[in-house]
């Protein structure tokens, strides 16, 4: 079991690093998958709400590191999403790819909506009607990337489900 936890921790660290490679090193915009949200949401399904919120704060500050305005807005959004994601463990049971796809889609959309709510600069920069136009597309690309990454992880550790 500890080996499984270590490999899962490495997987999550790789997701967070992958996000920074895509968005900071390569400079891709919001259309590139938000692997930090994927990492947080996947961890949230395996931990308690306070721990998921703490991880959301750390990952959010990392994601905000290059922000010139609204520093901390992503942190607020990911704290909310991390806590809510961990709470879903009491409501939904499951680790299928279809469930994970839906979970990541809703989680990422909620994170983006929370970000727009707390960040005036983010609202100004978002395209018109972003909540029902751009954000669902970003959420879909993130959810698909998350499911692919999870499938690769499960294949590499030789399990059908990560639990």
């Amino acid at each position: 079991m500890p080996e499984r936890n270590i490999s899962y921790g490495v997987f999550i660290a790789l997701l967070a690093s992958g996000h920074l490679v895509l968005h900071v090193a390569l400079g891709y915009g919001p259309a590139a998958p938000d692997l930090i949200a994927v990492a947080l949401l996947l961890v949230a399904r395996r931990t308690t709400p306070p721990r998921a919120a703490a991880l959301g704060l750390v990952l959010g500050l990392l994601a905000d590191g290059m922000a010139l305005t609204s520093f901390g807005a992503t942190a607020v959004a990911l704290v909310v999403v991390g806590w809510a994601g961990a709470r879903t463990r009491d409501m939904f049971e499951g680790g299928s790819y279809a469930f994970t796809l839906a979970f990541l889609f809703v989680g990422k959309w909620l994170a983006d909506a929370s970000y727009l709510l707390v960040s005036p600069a983010g609202r100004a920069a978002a395209p018109a009607g972003a909540l029902v136009t751009a954000l669902p597309l970003y959420a879909l690309s993130t959810a698909l990337a998350g499911v692919l990454a999870l499938a690769a992880y499960r294949f590499s550790v030789g399990t059908r489900y990560a639990r």
Binding site: L26, T69, S119
Partner: peptide
């Protein structure tokens, strides 16, 4: 280029 949130 910066692709992260808040760097628009």
């Amino acid at each position: 280029r910066l692709g992260s949130a808040g760097a628009e």
